[in-house]
Write a protein that binds this DNA or RNA. Structure first.
Length: 949
RNA sequence: GCCUCGGUGGCGGAACUGGUAGACGCGCUGGAUUCAAAAUCCAGUUCUUUCGGGAGUGUGGGUUCGAUUCCCACCCGAGGUACCA
């Protein structure tokens, strides 16, 4: 017994613990991966999406992308590049705030603790980060510049003539000269026209209000999900079935004055920019769809007996004669104005109902058809027919104008609505039946019963209807984007303060020299009893315009001292530009120094999850384009290439409780008819055969202390389910334990071996021993126990072939981010060399370099023991010598007449590239080829052979 | 609902532009070594079979001499859906 314990604890041969401690200390001491902004080497910037430091610590899903980017960074260093590979923390966020609400601890404190834990875990895995450039979005030194960018956005408008952002001062000058009638600028729809004289007569406040309609950061009334009981605004994410996830309180829509970003101004450029970047086609497609460009027309419908017109956007102006009703989004202000007294009650009730539904529910629900008639009519622009106005929640207020002209014969949604409410349907298509469903095929449509449009195709009718609408002033051709302006206010504590104070209810920006405007201390992190954001709890949160500093609220006189903004910025603010800060993290004069940004320019490889496709990855492109317009950044797209890593899923474990009892049935003795409550248990209490550690569970949670576990054949078997890895699901697997048991190199290789980097996959430690065994086997190529057994023997051709095949494969696979097949390739190589009993230094030395990006600790140790003076980290990667590969290639893929392919076994006369003998290997095709005699053979070594008949 | 991605042995996955499906690893089976265990090594392992073969890459069709790969329809799973990060 004693003996076996002794033997088990002694690590024979590959002692990963010592090796890893040694090299991590070496890297830290020598700052091996700190990178210089002045280098003669070509630059390469590898960026990870920085983590949010959560209280659960880093789990095995986090490092997946970091390992991949680290492999690539190390590879690039071996290829002679000056590699910038930084890391930092996206340290503002909701969870820290919620923890603060529960415990009263300052979020800065818990964030710092979490960061310390993350750092420890990251260091343990041997990443080659340049930590001297670390950034944290919640540090005043960093958010000073986030606030500065906000001020820049506030100070600019989007000029459609120069097609870029321009200073607001320029706009003011033009207003003074000519008013706003001829100005091509992106602004709010409702902005009235004024002349130069009128502008000059406006009061200063009136002018400021008008300018807000043009600023890229602006204030406007926006709808939010309001939960009165929690006293806070909720994300759609936090709402389940119309009630809050926490507590189950009702949620309603509420209008609030909020900061927004005019991202819509950049819609077209965000779309066009996708063409220049090497991102996956699927991700670009997601962004395209999110931006949602559609070409169509605005049409104005005169409201009967009213001086107003309703503006609609339609992609099908060709079907304008098929309009039989109009639908408005229930939340439009206009609805109140036009509702007739006899419909008032029904409309009000309907609006109330809609307020309970989230937008997502409304979009997801296509089956039920709901709506109410307002009692009012609009007039058709061409026929002057009366068209009833309805409201319906399938129309969304923030897409287009929130109003649609309904053409039931040409749109299925309108068709269903018309059928349901018995509204007439007009068929305006030639020779098409609309008895069963709407006719939506644009390709074959011929318009009929439509005056001047009759007989025209879709394309012709589109053109003609737009020109007719324009001629009579009741519409115009236009382009609409689905992309909405981004709401920028958050009623939270733990975010960047918006550097603005209010004078006469108008926002006044601070200046750069006043930044950072640091977060005030508060007693409570909840909203105030009056419903103001948490910053409303601060006692020192007023701006003294003379002293230019934050002072006590009691001093507010609205002459010199004014109240500061209470909202904070959203999570995406800091993450929209952090990658530039890494280039020059210590710079206190600028967000990034000119020299640094000229050198690094842009990110060459960006790695992160695809869940950010339409959030972070769009917002950051928007800010990039804006800062580029101002001449602050050298490129319009910041990330040349992007790889999305798939999420690692956890395998949760369940025990099954009989309702109302403390009896739990083993999974294998449950009959189908039994209704049981599945309860999650910690996956760490279950072994690989799904057997539960019953005693462990009893200790784990009090509810199981006296539970009755019904076992089968002596074991309790749990149920399994794959879902998102999360602390609350008790399925988190921590990398620390694996590092402890197998070492970081094994963890790194195993995570890569698990599958393609871009694919989502469940975490399963079952195969980890295979990778660990590989590293042990690798070690044994070099050492007999502790003694180096590498020889100076000349390698034979077979060994050289194995090595060069592997070099070729690894190089190709790293460059294509196929790290799982890299690991396989290395395994095959080591197996073959072991079988040949190869210990030749000429083979093993380059092989060490191949291993280095994947298992850097082990590679470093071996490299040093091979007698190399320099450490392995910046040594040249081995090059493939094709000569070793060509030699005995026998199997060539063959194509006939450039079309068919199969395999041919050839004996080649390599000197003349002539075929000596050819044997068809693929017998299934011989039948087809019978009687055909080749006229010409075209041979390209290592490529395809073409045979022309 | 909509957008994007995925579905291959008991498991993770491989298969380059359509050409011997299941590389590599796990697990399992048998063997060697060992007093025994660990570790290591060797052999086998898609299913089925009357041992001739037959079936097989989510389902149903299509294109092709030939389909995991291309096209159409469907089913299931994951991510996103605008205040989680």
């Amino acid at each position: 017994m004693c003996l076996s314990i002794l033997l088990n604890t002694k690590n024979v041969g590959y002692d990963f613990k010592n090796i890893e401690n040694k090299w991590q200390a070496h890297w830290a001491k020598n700052q091996t991966f700190n990178v210089d902004n002045h280098s003669t080497k070509p630059k390469f910037y590898v960026l990870d999406m920085f983590p949010y430091p959560s209280g659960a610590g880093l789990h095995v899903g986090h490092p997946l992308g970091y390992i991949a980017s680290d492999i690539y960074s190390r590879y690039k260093r071996h290829k002679g590049f000056n590699v910038l590979h930084p890391q930092g923390y996206d340290s503002f966020g909701l969870p820290a705030e919620q923890y603060a609400i529960q415990t009263g601890q300052h979020p800065a404190k818990t964030t710092q603790e979490n960061i310390n834990r993350y750092r420890e875990q990251l260091d343990q895995m041997g990443f080659s980060f340049d930590w001297s450039r670390e950034v944290r979005t919640s540090e005043p030194d960093f958010y000073k510049w986030t606030q500065w960018i906000f001020l820049l956005l506030f100070d600019h408008y989007y000029c459609n003539t120069s097609n870029k952002a321009q200073p607001i001062t320029q706009l003011i000058e033009r207003f003074q000269e000519e008013g706003n009638k001829n100005i091509e600028a992106v602004c709010d729809v409702a902005t009235p026209h004024f002349t130069s004289e009128e502008w000059k007569e406006f009061s200063a406040n009136e002018q400021q209000e008008l300018l807000l309609n043009y600023r890229l950061a602006y204030l406007s009334d926006t709808e939010v999900n309001w939960c009165a009981d929690l006293g806070t605004v909720l994300a759609n994410d936090e709402i389940i079935n119309g009630v809050s996830e926490r507590g189950g309180y009702p949620v309603t829509k509420k209008k609030m004055k909020q900061w927004s970003m005019r991202i819509g101004a950049y819609a077209e450029r965000l779309l066009q920019g996708l063409e220049q970047i090497d991102w996956s086609e699927s991700l670009k497609e997601m962004q395209r769809n999110w931006i949602g460009k559609s070409i169509g027309a605005k049409v104005f419908f005169q409201i009967e007996g009213h001086n107003k017109k309703i503006e609609v956007f339609t992609t099908r102006p060709d079907t304008i004669f098929g309009v039989t009703f109009m639908t408005l989004a229930p939340e439009l202000d206009l609805v109140q104005e036009i509702t007739r007294p006899d419909q008032k009650a029904a409309v009000e009730a309907y609006i109330k109902e809609t307020q309970k539904r989230t937008q997502r529910e409304r979009m997801a629900d296509v089956k039920s058809c709901t709506g109410v008639f307002t009692g009012s009519y609009v007039l058709h622009p061409f026929t002057q027919e009366r068209i009833p106005i309805w409201i319906g929640d399938y129309v969304l207020a923030d897409y287009g104008t929130g109003a649609v002209m309904a053409v039931p014969c040409g749109d299925q949604r309108d068709y269903d609505f018309a059928k349901h409410f018995d509204i007439p349907i007009k068929n305006i298509f030639n020779n098409v039946s609309i008895e069963e469903e709407a006719f939506t095929d644009k390709g074959t449509a011929i318009i009929d019963h439509s005056e001047f449009l009759s007989g025209l195709s879709y394309k012709e009718a589109m053109k003609r209807s737009i020109s007719e609408l324009e001629a009579q002033g009741s519409g115009e051709g236009t382009i609409n984007y689905r992309l909405r302006d981004a709401i920028f206010s958050r009623q939270r504590y733990w975010g960047e303060p918006i550097p603005v104070y209010y004078k006469d209810n108008l926002p006044q920006p601070l200046e750069l020299k006043n930044l950072p405007l640091t977060l005030p201390e508060v007693e409570k992190y909840l909203p105030t009893p009056e419903g103001a954001p948490p910053l409303g709890n601060a006692e020192t949160w007023a701006w003294d315009t003379q002293k230019e500093q934050v002072v006590d609220n009691t001093l507010i006189d609205n002459k010199i001292i004014f109240p500061l903004e209470l909202n904070t910025m959203p999570g995406w603010a800091g993450s929209s530009w952090y990658f530039y800060r890494y280039m020059d993290a210590q710079n206190s004069d600028s967000f990034v120094g000119k020299e640094a940004v000229e050198y690094w320019k842009e990110v060459d490889l960006y790695l992160g999850g695809s869940e950010h496709a339409t959030g972070h990855l769009l917002y950051s492109r928007f800010w990039q384009k804006f800062l580029y317009d101002l001449g602050l950044l050298p490129v319009e797209e910041y990330a040349k290439k992007l790889i999305n890593q798939g999420m690692i899923l956890g395998t949760s474990a369940f025990v099954y409780r009989k309702p109302g009892t403390q009896t739990y049935l083993s999974k294998d003795i449950i009959s189908d008819s039994e209704k049981l409550e599945p309860i999650r248990v910690d996956v760490n209490l279950v072994n690989s055969a799904d057997e539960l550690d019953i005693e462990g569970v009893r200790k784990w949670q009090p509810q199981f202390k006296n539970a009755d576990f019904k076992i089968n054949n002596g074991v309790y078997r749990v149920g399994r389910e794959v879902e998102k890895m999360s602390k609350s699901k008790y399925n988190v697997v921590n990398p620390d334990e694996i590092c402890e048991q197998y070492g970081a190199d094994t963890l790194r290789m195993y995570e890569m071996f698990l599958g393609p980097i871009e694919q989502a996959k469940p975490w399963n430690t079952a195969g980890i021993s295979g990778v660990h065994n590989f590293l042990k086997k690798y070690w044994r190529l070099f050492y007999d126990d502790e003694l180096l057994i590498v020889t100076d023997d000349q390698p034979n051709k077979k060994e050289l072939k194995i090595l060069h095949e592997t070099i070729k494969k690894i190089t190709f696979d790293i460059e294509h981010f196929s790290f799982n097949t890299c690991v396989s390739g290395l395994m095959i190589c080591v197996n073959e060399l072991t079988a040949l009993n190869c210990h030749s230094k000429a083979i093993l030395s380059p092989l060490t370099l191949l291993l280095s990006p994947f298992a850097p600790h082990l590679a470093s140790e071996i490299w040093k023991n091979l007698g190399n003076e320099s450490t392995i980290d910046h040594v040249d990667f081995p090059l493939v010598n094709e000569a070793y590969l060509v030699e005995d290639i026998k199997n060539y893929p063959v194509s006939f007449n450039g079309k068919m392919r199969f395999t041919l076994e050839l004996s080649l006369d390599l000197d003349n590239l002539a075929i000596q003998e050819a044997v068809l290997k693929d017998t299934r095709t011989t039948e087809y080829l019978e009687g055909m005699t080749p006229k010409k053979w075209i041979i390209v070594p290592n490529k395809i052979i073409n045979i022309v008949f």
